[in-house]
Design a protein around this nucleic acid. Sequence first.
RNA 1: GUGGGUAUAGCGUAGCUGGCCUAACGCGUCAGAUUGUGGCUCUGAAGACCGAGAGUUCAAAUCUCUCUACUCACCCCA
Length: 437
Amino acid sequence: MALLAKKPKGTADVVPSKSYMWHTVEKLTAETAQQYGFKEIRIPTFEDTGLFVRSVGETTDVVQKEMYTVSAAGDSQFTLRPEGTAGVMRAMLENGVMNEGFPQKVYYILSCFRHENVQAGRLREFHQFGCEMVGSASPRADAEVISLAKSVLDRVGLQNIVLNLNSIGCPECREKYRQALREYFEPHRDELCRTCQERLDKNPMRLLDCKSAEDQAIAKDAPVILDYLCDDCKKHFDGVKEYLGIMGIDYVVNPKIVRGLDYYTRTVFEFITTEIGAQGTVCAGGRYDGLIEELGGAKTPALGFGMGLERLLLVMQKQNCDFMQDKTCDLYFATMGEASVNKALCLTRAARDEGFFVEYDLVERGLKPQMKYADKIGAKFVIVLGDNEIESGKAKLKNMATGEQTDISIGDDFVPQFSQAMVNSMFSGLESEFGGL
RNA sequence: GUGGGUAUAGCGUAGCUGGCCUAACGCGUCAGAUUGUGGCUCUGAAGACCGAGAGUUCAAAUCUCUCUACUCACCCCA
């Protein structure tokens, strides 16, 4: 079939039969954040390009080659957000949220855009659940945010996901560390792979997670960031680990966790799974004590994380996690002829006003196909409305699970009777489920 | 940008040492199986110019080439 257009590369449709999966993660993530006292924040899909250049970092891949930047006639340049934190911090500053007292705790669910090559777990438009906490420099805040991420992962039912923890220090200790790395690798420069030779000059910390076996062998005895932390950073990191220990949150310290965005300081972490291919980081975050100042605000400590919802869903499906199913139809009216449809319209409105989920025939099918349809959509009850029923004002309410039929009035007292029938059927369902206790 | 894999009805597949393919099967969809009642079963129908283009051949879904799309991986990241 020759369709006019196909979806752009790296985008995904959520078909009606699958949307319940998204409802599940949206609900569970938001509820968990709220339990921790986080409130939702919503921000625009695009921002001034400069915001991302400044916050994410001019030299990062995200900024250098992955941004969707657009400019409409006469306007300045805008960029579709490649991540959530920058826009959220901008919004909090712009709306004076920072002046309302600390800590400020926000969460969001939004789409992000990066022009990358597509592969398993990596899309060009993807969705993130994120949380940010502003105004606390305490290691308690780090532990709290990590705990929240962990709670979300537990809540959706994930298993075998490992918290990798590291500290990349403050700008001062990081610079010292970079220097040490350069000194360590420089003698091996010629043995390194081509990209790592470049990394040595630009971003030596990236050398550590090169996949090449030779490079890994060289990097094996490289200096470790944790040995270069200043006293304050070290104390902070120890505090984070201690609090995590008290909360019973397992982690592994992984000095190779570096994070690709420039704004991170001190604590960085990733929750990593091995079950969904090469892109196993489901959740990643850290502290960014310098970002708010960088954006023109007062110097304010902050931290947060982003969780890739597509990746989360991949793992959930792989691990057969439970999803909230869509509600199913309470009552279906099978109609026969115009008078019947008219009656169904009235009864349907009445029942819907009372909160019931009601459907009737919209494609003018016969009775039998309507019954099949009612069955297919999982209708709990069916009422057939024919001439007899309309004349007598009484109809049969059919319980589709048991097949039993009970008389019901289709007059003014229709809704209360139906409500009662629903309750009764739930009760009888329980009885049979527990073997008639 | 660089490699590997795959491209057949809405979905999942078979066919791929060329002719019996005017393309098959399962699921799904629609309609029937004696008059107004679903789930099981049975019957039937609709639905694909076999990713696109070119070539080889008497003959191609099946062979060759080119292109495109999708996919996995590198890179990078959620």
